[in-house]
Amino acid sequence: MDALTDTNVIINSIEAVTEWRGLWAFLIGMVGSVAYFTVVYFGFVGSGKESRDLILGYFWGKNGRTTLAKVAWYSLVGGLIAGVFQLAERAFVPVQSFILGATWPSIVGQLLSGRQSGLPPGGPLGDKGITPDTSKLEEDKAARVAREATDLLAEPGQTPQGGQPTPGP
């Protein structure tokens, strides 16, 4: 049964490539990603300015403005993910590709969190939302923020006042 499924996926993949479905899915996925970015950029979604800035912050460069390179990178990944999901389909699924392109960060996040956690949900501490996994995530987040803060303090014209000495390049 599994072998049959695997064979079907391989056949679908070959067909997807030869019939250019994969390429179309890739392009539509990119359109989905750009559409999502546009909607956030103009503030049509989100509970307020803060949530909008939080999302757009990931697209900012060092000057505090949105960089086209990051938008292109985001869209490229959205397109690639849409293309990968198309490989498992026998028919061309443009709507799925568009939705995947628009929502790929949450889909990837769900896939990763579902596979990385070896702990059963709702264990003795799990129902309190506290597990070694979340602890590790919090530590990683703190380390990332520490790096960002150090970088910001080291921006040209800014002399760190007290605190940790700024590491060299």
């Binding site: 987040k141 703190a142 380390a143 923020v145 803060a149 303090l153 760190p160 007290g162």
Partner: peptide, 13 residues
């Protein structure tokens, strides 16, 4: 804000 950033850079979450 610079003081807040200093605290973050010291490793406080």
């Amino acid at each position: 804000l610079v003081n807040v950033l200093e605290k973050f850079s010291e490793g406080h979450a």
